[in-house]
Simulated scan of single mutants.
Amino acid sequence: MTALYASDPTVIRGRLVPEEESVFRSPFQRDRDRIIHSSAFRRLKHKTQVFVAHEGDYFRTRLTHSIEVAQVARTIAGALGLNGELTEAVALAHDLGHPPFAHAGEDTLNGLMAPYGGFDHNAQAVRIVTALERHYAAFDGLNLTWETLEGLAKHNGPVTGALPYALADYNARHDLELHTHASAEAQVAALSDDIAYNNHDLHDGLRARLFTDDEIAKLPIVGDSYAEVDRLYPGLDPKRRRHEALRRVFGVMVGDVIDCSRRALQEARPTSAAEVRYLGRPVIRFSTGLWEDLKQIRAFLFARMYRAPEVNAVRTRVHRVVTDLFPHYLNAPQHLPEEWRKDVAQARDQTALARLVSDYIAGMTDRFALQEHARLTGNPDLMPDAEGL
């Protein structure tokens, strides 16, 4: 049953370029389909989540992560009576703005772009779906609904202070009310992101042998899950034991969000999606106890995975790739692909050119960035070798 506070696809706030809506698909379903068919979504297949793609076919990429987030988000949205299509659209698009090489790539690009307005992957996602995707005859971007764009811009909460330029440019044309919270659907997508990466980073870290099952069994939630599996299936094959335990961790997090959010919504009693935005607080949330548990899990992952010596070695090498590519294109924009040169000719100043270069690099996959670096610098040393990058 659809809740009063769910986003209603029959009463949308429109698209920047008016279109006749589909007879067969709701506006939010149409948004989701356009996202799935976009070039940026396909490129997520070869963009890193934590490990560079060359380390093995079993580690998550941005694409598999986005699909997992969407699956969790649909489950939570359904349990809370929210619009599943809007939730899924935001979940599938939330990582479109990530550059190659995960957070290492973003940190490097943000530093290089500091004189030109910086780089923010959430703002870049909005820029991609409003400007950089160029396939439709009537408009640049995907011309998504206001509700989907709002969810992309502020699924992590209101955006205040100095706006990232990529977001400010669009917001000046199509006010996304950045000072308010997003819809409940977008809030679900944000927490589903937390659930997915906390769970699959434990799994990928184990597969990479950065830590052991016994070590993570000392963590909250995780330890109880392993204990339950051992009680129900004594002597289980280690790989099955791990899977059974981590899927229970997944279930605990999802169940907590559903239970806690139901209580928050019952207390707030919003009667429309608009009321959710103006409550002044999120209505989709973890319980205090589970949030504290997740802090411990994240601290463990930060120390043992995100800053592990093996991963830091990769960070150093990919930092070099992005650091070399950016000034190369800035000083020799004629080396950009032909389809980008019209934009180069129209760049008014160095800032406009730098933002164009940033757009191009941010759209690269890990593999293409490595190939371009080797081609342009004549230095193949940073390409994957027998030991992996």
Rank of each mutant, 00 (worst) to 15 (best):
D120A: 13
Q371G: 08
L330W: 05
Q71S: 13
I195L: 02
A79L: 10
A138C: 04
F250L: 08
T323Q: 11
P380C: 14
A93E: 03
R307V: 09
V17Y: 07
W291P: 03
H335I: 11
H155K: 12
F24W: 07
T48H: 09
D293T: 15
P27Q: 04
Q49G: 09
F302W: 11
F101L: 02
H181V: 05
I361T: 13
A166V: 03
A138N: 10
G97M: 04
F41R: 14
T75K: 14
R15E: 02
D256M: 10
F119D: 00
T323A: 15
D57S: 11
A186H: 09
F28T: 06
A40D: 02
A190Q: 05
I12D: 00
L236N: 10
Q124D: 00
R127W: 01
R209I: 09
A93N: 08
A217D: 02
R269K: 00
C260R: 15
M364L: 15
V72H: 14
M383W: 00
V283W: 00
Q334L: 09
L370C: 08
V311L: 10
V69W: 05
Y360F: 11
V249H: 07
P99I: 06
M113R: 14
R348D: 05
N312V: 15
Y58L: 07
L353C: 04
A374K: 12
R241K: 03
T377E: 00
A182L: 07
P309D: 09
A313C: 14
L132N: 13
A131K: 13
R13G: 07
G205I: 00
E339R: 11
D381C: 10
A386C: 08
V344G: 00
L325S: 14
V188H: 02
S66N: 03
Q350V: 10
A332C: 14
N331I: 11
L149Q: 07
Q187V: 12
P337F: 10
K45R: 12
A104E: 13
L389K: 13
F326I: 02
P282Q: 14
V321K: 07
A227D: 08
P100D: 00
R367Q: 11
K295N: 01
L16S: 03
H98K: 12
H203M: 09
